[in-house]
Write a protein that binds this DNA or RNA. Structure first.
Length: 422
RNA sequence: GCGUCGGUGGUAGAGUGGUCAAUUACAACAGACUGUAAAUCUGUCGCCCAUUGGGCUACGCAGGUUCGAAUCCUGCCCGGCGCA
């Protein structure tokens, strides 16, 4: 018996969408489900004890960050990432492959995984490299020079076929990850689900580089898998997901899905770096290449609209920093779209954030109060906002699940999106 | 009363003859954020038009010097400090 397995409860006819139960050593996750991001073994601003009441069934922590601090040994001494943070439900760790992108190619640049929405862009004036919405830079190269943090070797993340060398963003020290090392660290971190070490490429990487990186990711996937299976003890307690790459190119995505699917993984992650437009068209094609009986995790995706797209394409779990990041910075989800709670219009608003929301925050606080907390810089503001947002996404995933089970998925989706987009 | 220093945009506070509608910070008003180097970042921030750009009113008040003044001079008003 594998440590990770998916029990499919219901499939939506004529669709890849399904509802199921993901079994893990630390309990079940009812899918589709939203997994909270706990990069450094904490969901920013939220106590582990609160997560259950917010509907959070699982968390995903990060190998790179926990390796640098406090170090995987410390987490291991603490009983693994779950026990360390006192979260007794299912846990995952990301392999650090995303940091190859965020600290390497995209480092120091305001580059988004999603290309900006053309319709919202200001009329093209001189593209400014300081303009966060300007994606003119060539990010296809695998490494960058950074004036501030460059050390003797000069770069922050350098990819080669064996692995990745990088400098710590904390102290500039030199480190190296290989697939084997990433797995070793993830064994120490002890999450229920670990991920193969991959290379997350920039969204606008050119085809040639994208292909090269994808092939490398496939080789790393084999090595990650082998390193995991070799460890009999860990292999019995932790499941491993392979990651599909391929960027925005459909043929590469399909090739990657086939290749990764042919390996003996317990589940699959679908790596980021495609534009919103491509997400819709490619995702179902990717998932069709993956074995139906194994779980699929859509990495880093999580606007409400994206959950519908992902679920419709047959993804089982999602994670995303947005509910906590947006929450911290005042952006709150409602059934009528996102609002900026610090804005003046909420100064006297005596209603809850979202009158349709059933979260503990909406049950208790007014917009006026939360607005005040943000205006005065009180830390409770971001905390409450993060709680609400996390509940919103977790609850949305739960409702999507229910709609798949009772066959009302499309109806629910259309109704929700109609209200969400006004 | 005499002396002295100072009065700048919502606030604090630069600027001391032209490149000043005026640095900067805060406040204010918006925006962005998708496997978290993010409790972060970006834009706007005198008024009126405008596509670059243009016009108007402004640095306590009133005069003056000058081609040109927030910047120099004179008087007045107001405030801090010192001496009587």
């Amino acid at each position: 018996m594998r440590p990770i397995s998916l029990q499919i409860e219901k499939e939506l006819p004529g669709s890849l969408a399904r509802a199921g139960i993901l079994h893990t050593p630390h309990g079940d996750i009812e899918t589709p489900a939203f997994i909270a991001v706990a990069t450094k073994a904490d969901v920013k601003g939220i106590e582990a004890a609160r997560l259950a009441e917010l509907g959070v069934q699982g968390i995903i922590a990060n190998t790179y960050h926990l390796y640098l601090s406090p170090g995987e040994k410390i987490v291991q001494i603490g009983g693994g990432v779950g026990k360390f943070m006192t979260f007794d439900r299912p846990t995952m760790t990301d392999s650090g492959g995303f940091q190859v992108f965020s600290l390497g190619v995209g480092f120091g640049k305001k580059i988004s995984k999603f290309l900006p929405d053309e319709s919202r862009k200001a009329p093209a004036k001189g593209r400014d490299e300081h303009d966060p919405n300007s994606l003119l830079q060539d990010f296809s190269a695998p490494a960058v020079w950074d004036e501030d943090l460059a050390t003797s070797h000069g770069k922050l993340a350098i990819v080669d076929d064996e692995g990745v060398s990088f400098t710590s963003h904390l102290d500039g020290s030199l480190h190296r990850f290989t697939p084997e090392r990433s797995i070793e660290i993830q064994h120490a971190l002890g999450a229920d689900i670990i991920f193969a070490f991959d290379e997350c490429t920039a969204p606008n990487a050119e085809y040639e580089y994208q292909k090269e990186a994808m092939d490398r990711t496939h080789r790393w996937a084999e090595r990650s898998l082998r390193a995991h299976r070799q460890n009999v003890e860990k292999n019995a307690k932790q499941g491993i997901y392979g990651i599909v790459q391929g960027g925005r190119y459909a043929d590469l995505r399909i090739e990657s899905a086939r290749e990764i699917a042919s390996m003996d993984f317990d589940g699959f992650g679908i790596g980021g770096s495609f534009s919103k437009h491509d997400l819709l068209g490619i995702l179902d094609k990717v998932n069709m290449e993956l074995p139906k009986e194994k779980p699929r995790h859509l990495l880093g995706i999580g606007e409400p609209e994206d959950l519908f797209i992902g679920a419709a394409a047959g993804c089982d779990t999602f994670d995303c920093v947005l509910p906590t990041r947006n929450g911290r910075t005042g952006g709150l989800y409602t059934h009528h779209g996102k609002i900026q709670i610090p804005n003046a219009e909420y100064k006297e608003d005596q209603n809850p954030i979202d009158s349709e929301c059933t979260c503990p925050v909406c049950a208790r606080y007014t917009k006026s109060y939360i607005h005040h907390l943000f205006r005065t810089g009180e830390m409770l503001g971001p905390i409450l906002a993060s709680q609400h947002n996390l509940y919103f996404l977790a609850n949305l995933a739960r409702r999507i699940r229910e709609s798949i089970i009772d066959g009302s998925f499309e109806k629910f989706r259309d109704a929700f999106l109609a209200g969400y987009n006004h």
